[in-house]
Simulated scan of single mutants.
Amino acid sequence: MHVWAVANQKGGVGKTTTAVNLGALLAEQGKRVLLFDLDPQGSMTAYFKYNPDELQHSSYDLFCHKGQIPEYLPQQIIVDTPHAGLQLLPASTALATLERNISQQDGMGLVVSKTLALLWDDFDYVLIDSPPLLGVLMINALAACARLLIPVQTEYLALKGLERMVHTLDMVMKSRQKSFQYLIIPTMFDRRTQASLKCLRMLKQDYDDKVWNSMIPVDTKLRDASKEGLAINAIDPNSRAAQKYRSLLETLQNGGG
Rank of each mutant, 00 (worst) to 15 (best):
I216E: 02
Q105Y: 14
V20W: 00
K49I: 08
Q181V: 12
V111I: 09
C145K: 00
L162T: 06
L88T: 01
A46T: 13
D106R: 15
K31Y: 05
G23L: 02
E155V: 08
G23W: 03
Q104P: 04
F48E: 01
K178A: 04
A84V: 10
L162I: 06
G85W: 02
L252A: 05
L133K: 12
Q253V: 08
D170G: 14
L116G: 01
L149P: 00
K227P: 09
A91M: 08
L88Q: 02
K178R: 10
V3W: 02
I184M: 05
N51D: 15
A84K: 14
Q68Y: 14
Q41T: 08
G257Q: 04
A24M: 09
L252V: 11
D39W: 07
Q75C: 13
L249S: 00
I102A: 01
A241S: 10
Q205D: 14
K210M: 09
G11D: 02
G42N: 06
K174N: 11
I185N: 02
G135T: 07
Y207R: 06
A46S: 15
A117L: 11
I184L: 06
L118M: 05
D80R: 15
V112I: 12
D206F: 15
Y156C: 09
M44E: 04
E163R: 15
M188S: 07
E71R: 12
N101C: 11
N254Q: 12
E155R: 09
Q76Y: 10
S103N: 09
E99P: 04
G109P: 02
R240M: 11
D224V: 11
S239K: 05
I77P: 00
G85C: 03
L183Y: 04
D208I: 15
K244N: 08
Q194P: 11
V211Y: 03
V79C: 04
E155M: 09
S43W: 06
I185C: 03
K210E: 07
H167K: 14
Q75N: 15
E71T: 13
M165L: 15
P132F: 08
V79N: 00
Q205H: 14
L183D: 00
Q243G: 12
A144H: 02
V218G: 07
A24K: 03
V166S: 01
Q243N: 12
D236W: 10
L183G: 05
A94N: 12
L169E: 05
A242R: 04
W4C: 01
C64N: 14
P52F: 04
A242W: 03
A241V: 09
A19D: 04
M173F: 08
Q105R: 13
T168F: 14
V112Y: 02
W4P: 00
V218N: 10
E99I: 09
Y50F: 13
K174I: 13
N8M: 07
G42S: 08
R147P: 01
G161V: 07
D236S: 11
E155N: 11
V166Q: 02
W120P: 01
R147G: 06
Q104C: 10
D53G: 11
M165W: 10
R223H: 14
L118Q: 00
G161N: 04
Q205L: 13
D39M: 07
M215F: 15
D39G: 03
E228N: 12
D39N: 11
Y156G: 05
A5E: 00
Y72T: 12
T251M: 07
